Computed example of a mutant assay.
Amino acid sequence: MKMLALPLLIILLQSPVCLSVTVSSSKPKVEVHEHSDAVLSCEFRTEKDQSPRIEWKKTGKGVKFVYFNHKFIDSYAKRAEIEGATLTLHSVTQKDTGEYRCEVTASADNVNLGEAIVTLNVLVPPHVPSCEIPGSVFVGKGLDLLCKDKLSVPPATYRWFKDNKAMMATVDTPYSIDTNKGTLKFKSVSKTDAGMYRCESSNNVGAPKSCVAHQLKVVDYPWNMTILIAGAAGFLILTLLCCICVCVCRHRGCCKKNKKTKSTKSYNPQPPPPPPIRNLKHYKQTQSFMI
């Protein structure tokens, strides 16, 4: 075994070593609060090249340069800095959320390109949600109260309050609550459902935020409205009955019009007119007769 190991060691020492640049990140996933600093780490090692080229790009629908040719590009120029290959973004917003790629090019190495991916997620605390609460509703009608916070990251969950008391939906309650969509649904409202309603959005980033409470009134149908609805319903029923009667009558032939017979008059033939009288002045005797 010792005799075999010695030739192998000599062969390994004499063979060329494959030199390459290596790039890595000590923290490939970064989560920071909005308006704070985000540090995107990037560490590299080269075998020969002591001055490799370093680039940062933001990927997604399109590739956008962050750091190129030893300078920051566009909006990053005034709010970013680099140390070695580690990138720091100051006062990040939701627009900075995405995937970033650190690229190191060492032209003197055999494998001269290496890269590392860092994902940045900017967390946004809850904002004041928009609430849709009508001023009044008729007794017995269905009702949906809506609440939405489109800006919070991660997406907010919702709670509803009536008269400053948290509402808890159960099997026995006349309403249901969707904590993810922010909807409060009533199948049929009653007088006891009247009160002050508000919605609260929350996530694990910041303090919950609530919209301004709104008064919901539950009213009865007015008498004139009831009479109008009843009258309209009666008119529709009467019109329908008339149409049915006309159709039945036409089907049975009751509505066919009787054809009027023309009266025949007796015909009395008239005698032919007398022949026209000739003018005697122009009459000339052509022959004479002897008796």
Rank of each mutant, 00 (worst) to 15 (best):
S188F: 05
C254N: 12
N203F: 07
A207W: 14
M168F: 03
I237V: 11
M168W: 04
I237R: 11
V248M: 05
L241P: 00
I244D: 03
L241E: 01
H251Y: 15
N180W: 06
Y197H: 03
C211P: 00
W160F: 07
Y175A: 04
H251G: 08
M196E: 06
F161Y: 01
N204E: 15
P222C: 07
A194D: 04
F235W: 10
T173I: 14
H251N: 09
C245S: 14
P222Y: 07
I229N: 09
Y175V: 00
I177M: 01
C249A: 15
C199H: 00
G206H: 02
I227F: 12
A207K: 13
F161A: 01
A194N: 04
R198W: 06
L216A: 02
V189I: 11
V189G: 02
V171Q: 13
M225Q: 11
S201P: 01
T226W: 06
H214C: 09
G231R: 09
A230E: 07
C242N: 10
K162R: 13
A230D: 07
T183C: 08
T173N: 04
K162S: 11
N203S: 04
D178R: 10
P174M: 12
A230Q: 06
T170F: 04
G206N: 02
D193T: 02
F235V: 12
E200W: 03
V246G: 11
A207T: 14
Y197W: 04
S190Y: 08
S201K: 00
K165M: 08
L238R: 07
C254P: 08
F161G: 01
C242G: 09
D172W: 09
G253W: 15
P222K: 05
M225I: 12
V189P: 02
V171G: 11
P222D: 10
I244M: 08
I237A: 07
K209H: 13
T157C: 05
H214R: 10
K191Q: 13
V171F: 14
R159W: 03
C245Y: 14
R250W: 09
C254K: 13
V205H: 08
P208C: 03
D178F: 12
N203D: 07
G195T: 05
G206C: 01
T226S: 06
C249F: 15
H214P: 06
A169G: 02
G182F: 10
T170Q: 01
N203L: 05
A194E: 02
P208L: 04
M167V: 05
D193G: 03
F186L: 01
